[in-house]
Design a protein around this nucleic acid. Structure first.
Lengths: 336, 336
DNA sequence: CTGAAAGCGCTTACAG
DNA sequence: CTGAAAGCGCTTACAG
C-alpha cells in the first residue's frame, strides 16, 4: 500500500492524498478528505517515513545520546536508576508530538556526526555529557538543535535544563535548621566541581541567612557516592565538632553515611540526621528511609522536549535555552 | 555530499561507489577502491540511510518496545533499575553490528504496526510484554522477527530469552540448606503465575533432594514486592514454625522482609537469613547487604541481539528460539 | 570489472 | 481546489 495505490483507489492524484495525510486541508474539499480517509483506514495505510524523510529533509527522529565508557566494566550512565525514567518520559513526550526516539551511545565525535547525517536526525538530547569537548564538537558541527541536562556549558544556543542545585541544598539545610540543628555538615568534595559548588553555596547561604556558624570543619570533602558516604559517616562521628546533622548531594552518599555511622556504632537519625539528594528509588529501601531533595524529573524531561521541538519548528535559536527546574524536600525518616 | 558527488569526483559511476561502500569488493578493482575510499574520507561522506532504506527494504533499525501504562502515575517498566542496563547492553551490541536502536512505548497494537511500517523496522525486542495478546498480535502481523525476555508465550517462532528461574531458587534454597538451615520459607503468591511457579519448583526440588520436610506453612503467599515483603517478614516472625531462613523471588521483597522483621523487633540475618533475587543495585544499599541470585543480564541481552540478528540475516525462523540463561548466587551479608 | 536505466515512496514547486 | 512533473539519494537488476 503506497500513496499511489490510495490515490488510484480514490480516483485522485497522489498530491491530494499527500495533502490530506499532512493535514493541508485548505487545499482539499471536505468530501475528498472524507473519501480518502476512509480508504486509508480500510487498507490500514501507513506512510513510509524513509521516503518522507528523503524528500522533506526532516526525519522526525530525535537522538538520545549517552556517553558510554570504553571501559566495559565501568558503570554506564544508563545503569543509573534515573536514566530509565528520564528516557521513558522523553520518549513518551516525543511520541505524543509525532517524533521518534533513537538511542545511541557514543564514545567519540565521529560516531555521532555519522548518526546525524545517516538519519537526518532533527534534534539531539544529550544525557549528561561526560566531557564538554564532545558536546561542543557536536554543537559546532551545527547539524541540529541540542538539549542537555545539568550542564556547565556556557553556550547559550544549547538548551540546558538544570535542577536548581543551589535551591536544593538551601532547602535541605534550612529543613535541618528548622528542626533545631545548628551544627550541620556538608558532604562533598565540591571544590573545582561547578555543580557541587552551586550546591555548597546553597548550604552556605542557608547557614548565613539563619545566622549560624559556618565552619570549615563542617565540610567533609568526600566523593558523593556510597563509599565516600561510608567514610564521611565515620569521619563525622569521630570528629570533635558535635555535628548532629548532615546534608549530602546524593542518596547514595546518604546511604553510605548511614552505613558508616552503623559501622562506628551510631544510628541515623538518633545520632545524626541526614538528607539525601535525588529522591531516588533507593530512599524507600534504606533504613531509616531517606528524606531527600526531589528533582522534578518529569518536568525536566518534558521541558527539554518542548524547548527542543520548539526550536526545531521555529528555527529560533535564541530563546529560553536555559531553564532551572525547582526542587522540593520529600520527608521520610532520616531526620529528627 | 551524495553518492553521485563522490562518483563524479572519482570519475566513476555511482554504482561503483555504492559497491565500494557496501563492501562488494569482488566487483571493483583494488585501485578504484582505494581512490574512492580516499575521497569518501576527504569529504567525510556518510550515506543517507533513509534513501538506502527506501530501496533496499531493510532499515537496520531495531525497535525496543516497552509497554507503557496508560495510567500516568503507575510505575513504568523503564523505571525498573534493570531497564536501563538491559537497554544499554542491547543498544551497544546492535551498534557494534551496524544496527540502530529505536525505543517505543506502546499501549495498543495499532501504535505498533504503524511504527514497523513507518520505518521498515527489521526486528523487535519486546521488553517484558505485560500481556500476551499484544505480543501475539505483533507476531501475527508478521512484519519482522521478535525477541522477548522471560515470557511464557508458547510460540516457538518468537525468540525467548529466559533466566533459569528453576535453577535460581534451587540454588538459593540449596545455599541455605548448606548453611545448616532446615526450616526454610518460600515467599511469593506463585499459584497461577508460571514464572513464580517455576521458581517455587526449584525451591521444592531442593528441599526434596536434601530430604528436608516440605510444609505448606513454609509458603507465604504474598506479592513479591516491597510491601509484600514487609507483610511476609511480620508473618514469618509471628508464625509457629520456627523458620530460620527464607528464599524470595525479588530483591525488593527481600528488602521488605528485612523491614518487616525490624518492625517486629527481629533482625536479619541473626533471626532470619534471607536471599534476594535479581542481584539488583539495591542489594548493596540495604542493611544487611543482600545475598542474591544474579541474573546474567549481559548474557541475556547479548543473546537476544545475536539470535535476532541471525534470524534477520538468514530468515531461518525455526532454530534456537528459546534459551535459558544460567544464574548464580552473589554472597553478601543477609545469610548466616 | 564497470555503468546506464529504472525505481523505491514520498514531497516540493509549480501550473492550471 | 486538484494534478503532472521532477527529484530526494540510494540500490536492484541487468547489460556489456
Amino acid at each position: 500500500m503506497t500513496l499511489k495505490d490510495i490515490a488510484k483507489k480514490a480516483g485522485v492524484s497522489t498530491m491530494t492524498v499527500s495533502n490530506v495525510i499532512n493535514g493541508k486541508h485548505s487545499h482539499v474539499s471536505a468530501q475528498t478528505i472524507e473519501k480518502i480517509n476512509k480508504i486509508i483506514k480500510e487498507y490500514n495505510y501507513v506512510p513510509n517515513l524513509s521516503a518522507r524523510s528523503l524528500t522533506s529533509k526532516t526525519s522526525h527522529i530525535i537522538a538520545i545520546l549517552v556517553s558510554s565508557n570504553t571501559n566495559e566494566t565501568a558503570d554506564n550512565f544508563l545503569e543509573n536508576p534515573y536514566a530509565g525514567r528520564i528516557i521513558s518520559i522523553i520518549e513518551q513526550e516525543l511520541q505524543k508530538n509525532g517524533y521518534y526516539t533513537m538511542i545511541y551511545s557514543i564514545t567519540q565525535k565521529e560516531d555521532l556526526t555519522c548518526l546525524i547525517k545517516n538519519w537526518h536526525v532533527d534534534g539531539i538530547i544529550f544525557l549528561y555529557p561526560e566531557n564538554k569537548n564532545l558536546l561542543n564538537e557536536v554543537y559546532s558541527a551545527g547539524y541540529c538543535p541540542i538539549a542537555v541536562f545539568d550542564s556547565d556549558i556556557d553556550n547559550p544556543d544549547i538548551i540546558n535544563i538544570c535542577t536548581d542545585d543551589y535551591l536544593g541544598l538551601y532547602l535541605s539545610t534550612e529543613y535541618l535548621i528548622k528542626k533545631g540543628h545548628t551544627n550541620i555538615a556538608f558532604i562533598a568534595n565540591y571544590k573545582g566541581n561547578p555543580l557541587l559548588t552551586r550546591r555548597f553555596q546553597g548550604y552556605y547561604q542557608a547557614l548565613k541567612d539563619y545566622n549560624l556558624p559556618i565552619k570549615e570543619n563542617y565540610v567533609f570533602p568526600f566523593s558523593p557516592n556510597y563509599e565516600g558516604g561510608v567514610s564521611a559517616g565515620k569521619a563525622i562521628m569521630t570528629c570533635s565538632e558535635n555535628i548532629t546533622a548532615a546534608v549530602t548531594t546524593s542518596d547514595l552518599c546518604a546511604a553510605g553515611i548511614i552505613e558508616g555511622c552503623r559501622q562506628n556504632g551510631f544510628c541515623v537519625p538518633q545520632d545524626l540526621s541526614i538528607i539525601g539528594f535525588d529522591n531516588s528509588i533507593l530512599c524507600r529501601y534504606t533504613f531509616p528511609q531517606l528524606t531527600s531533595v526531589s528533582q522534578n524529573m518529569e518536568k525536566k524531561a518534558k521541558t527539554a522536549v518542548h524547548l527542543l521541538l520548539k526550536k526545531i519548528k521555529t528555527g529560533n535559536l535564541q530563546e529560553n535555552n536555559f531553564k532551572k527546574i525547582p526542587v522540593k524536600i520529600i520527608e521520610r525518616s532520616s531526620v529528627i
